[in-house]
Amino acid sequence: MKTISKLIKVTLVALLFVVSSCSNDDDGGSSIPNIVELAQSSPNLTSLVAALEKADLVTTLQSGGAYTVLAPDNDAFGRALTTLGFASLDEIDTPEEIAALRNILLNHVISGTIISAQINTGYGSTLATNADGDNLSIYLKSDNNGVSFNGMSEVTAADLPASNGVVHVVDEVILPPTVVTFATADSNFSSLVAALTRSDQPAFADILARTEGANNDGFDPDFTVFAPTDEAFASLIDSNPSWNSLEDIDGALLTSVLLHHVKDEANIRSGDLTDGISPTMLEGSITINLPGDDGNPAKITDGAGNMNIAVIAVDVQAVNGVIHVIAEVMIPAS
């Protein structure tokens, strides 16, 4: 079975889809359109073209590259506009709304040309950013059912060649992800999601899905989440003879444990870490040492004094925080 480190460290360095001038028009130029021209020629991508024009991204996707563009079809744009509270693109007119639209569109653009055969399950980065300017991650999944992104959008037409990249048509607009987006999309976090959503727990999923200003209260979440894998939760359950499943863990204890994995109001990326740093979590504090063992980027001592907890993947960047993946569940002092 593939390990989480292999899945998350997947390299999205696909073979460059070299579009040569194998077909020329009468004037001797290439007949292969650029990304914008390809979208303009498709009756099912008219909303995308209009959105690119409104967000001032036409020039970028005409002359830049190489890019992989995940192109939502017209139906996808219609559903997304409804979700965001707009009747049409024409209603997006303030500078703040246009900036948000631009970031949504950039969340569909990946640097480099990635054809469908080169897509493996794991994480990559888009050109969208959070408030700090960090590029947002995107979770790509490839299996017998096809290719999907962030657990919310599937490819319906793949490998449309452009002179400056490749286009894959998708059936949903991929909104900027929260930390909850990645937790629910990535099957390696199924136990974590089950713990966060257990009926006797606080509304963790709602809290961790919050974005800046979502409730007009000025709250800036910027969560840093140390996310244990399913294997980590299995080891935790095996550590107590009285536990046979996640449901056997006392509710108050589980709450404390989950809070021990989250720091709020700080988007702490791996580059921000220093050896011996001790961030205060929502429950207790932890100590992080650099580097980790066995080639891992870092290791943690939890509040209970358990040492050498491996950080096995870092910087899964959401719009409201960042996830680092750990190989053991951390226990607070309490």
Rank of each mutant, 00 (worst) to 15 (best):
V170D: 04
G133I: 03
S88C: 08
T211W: 05
D206E: 15
L38R: 15
V36N: 12
L259Q: 14
A100I: 06
D143M: 01
A183N: 09
A327L: 06
T178H: 11
M307V: 10
P228K: 11
G284E: 13
T274H: 02
N150D: 06
S23H: 10
L246V: 04
F189N: 11
I104A: 07
N320D: 09
L259N: 14
A318M: 00
E231H: 03
V10L: 08
D75E: 14
D220R: 10
S137C: 04
P279N: 09
F189E: 06
V170E: 13
D73K: 00
A214W: 03
N107S: 03
L127I: 14
N144L: 08
A194F: 06
I300Y: 15
A80Y: 15
F233H: 01
H168Y: 06
S256K: 10
L258N: 09
N120S: 08
F223P: 09
I312G: 00
N130L: 05
A318I: 00
T82H: 10
A310Y: 01
I249R: 07
I326K: 00
S187L: 07
L127E: 12
V166T: 08
A214F: 08
V311L: 00
V13Y: 13
R269K: 08
G165Q: 10
A128L: 04
S5W: 04
S191H: 15
L52Y: 02
A234K: 06
V311N: 00
V36G: 12
N188C: 02
V18G: 06
T211K: 03
P202L: 02
D27S: 11
N308M: 09
G29R: 09
L136N: 03
D272E: 08
M307N: 13
L89G: 09
N296H: 12
V225I: 04
A252G: 11
N164V: 05
D217E: 02
A327D: 14
L81Q: 03
S137R: 05
A87E: 11
K2M: 04
Y67E: 15
L7W: 10
E231I: 14
L48C: 14
N120A: 06
I32W: 07
S47M: 09
S256M: 04
P33C: 01
I268R: 01
